[in-house]
Nucleic acid binder design. Structure first.
Lengths: 151, 151
DNA sequence: CCAATATGTATCATTGTTTGTTACATGAAA
DNA sequence: TTTCATGTAACAAACAATGATACATATTGG
């Protein structure tokens, strides 16, 4: 099944923005993700509406962070990109009257709910600042690299 | 994102088989799932190869269970249908050299791994016999229903 | 004011996966 | 030998995610 990479992509560009001292254009960001500038704008539109990032038009414009990295968790970003369904599995509403199906779905739903709850807890426990610090650690470990982010 | 319902579907038909005293044809089973007989055969083919079910050709033929319900867990069935990817989210291999991406993916992977491990644990803790018992409880609670499974 | 740059967004094309369908071969039973 | 059933390949349809194009809007700086 095809995987939705919105969350990963958004975090990727947010971190790049965190380590940039000037606005980054959709064009530049799309280069990092090897995608299209329009896709970037589309994806970041939600974050802009929620006030996590700011977009400025015109020359010298682009995207900048507009939040406290230490206050925003991965869960916030997950919500911001639309809280996409966590699981690739589910069940159609085949026939909810069927007692057999009710039994099956009940058992599966229980397991899936618990797993999703754990995932959300874990995402809530990591801030963008944590990610940024993690990046810095990796950078210290590879100081020879010319650019902090090889693209 | 579209959800894969193979696991749910397979469990559904397995339980029907568990409560039937004769082989059920792909045609009948496809009726329960509101799908196509060929899809059923395709999906159950894996379970047949693993010995969980048996398929008999010819008049009076069809599908029957060929395992101990108390010994087979939902996790076994999950594996039997191909252990489809659990999550609808992921990350492309955009640019693994990028330290930013490494930091992001590291954090996400950690959270996803834990959630998946919990899901597998939960699935391992439920047997087909448990599901069958659950069905029976539901049936006791609705004794007026003419057929044990309304289809 | 105007040219250049950048986002905002609607629309359409492309791609890939899943599911459904058709067709036909194989095998078993009466 | 007819009928009923599975086994499977091949193809069609449906759908969602992604990419691309076009153009409007806003801002900067000469």
């Amino acid at each position: 099944m095809k995987k939705d990479s919105k969350l990963s992509s958004v975090l990727h560009v947010l971190l790049h923005m965190a380590h940039s001292d000037r606005p980054l254009t959709s064009d530049e960001l799309s280069g990092y993700l090897q995608t299209n500038p329009v896709v970037v704008r589309r994806t970041l539109a939600g974050l802009r509406e929620l006030g996590y990032v700011e977009a400025v038009k015109g020359p010298g414009g682009g995207w900048t962070l507009d939040c406290d990295l230490a206050q925003v968790t991965l869960r916030d970003i997950y919500d911001a990109v639309g809280s996409p369904g966590v699981f690739a599995m589910g069940h159609r509403e085949e026939n909810p009257q069927c007692l057999v199906e009710q039994a099956v779905n009940g058992a599966l739903d229980q397991a899936f709910r618990e797993a999703e709850a754990l995932l959300i807890r874990r995402l809530s426990g990591v801030t963008l600042a944590d990610l940024s610090a993690d990046f810095n650690r990796r950078y210290q470990a590879h100081p020879r690299r010319k650019a902090p982010h090889a693209h």
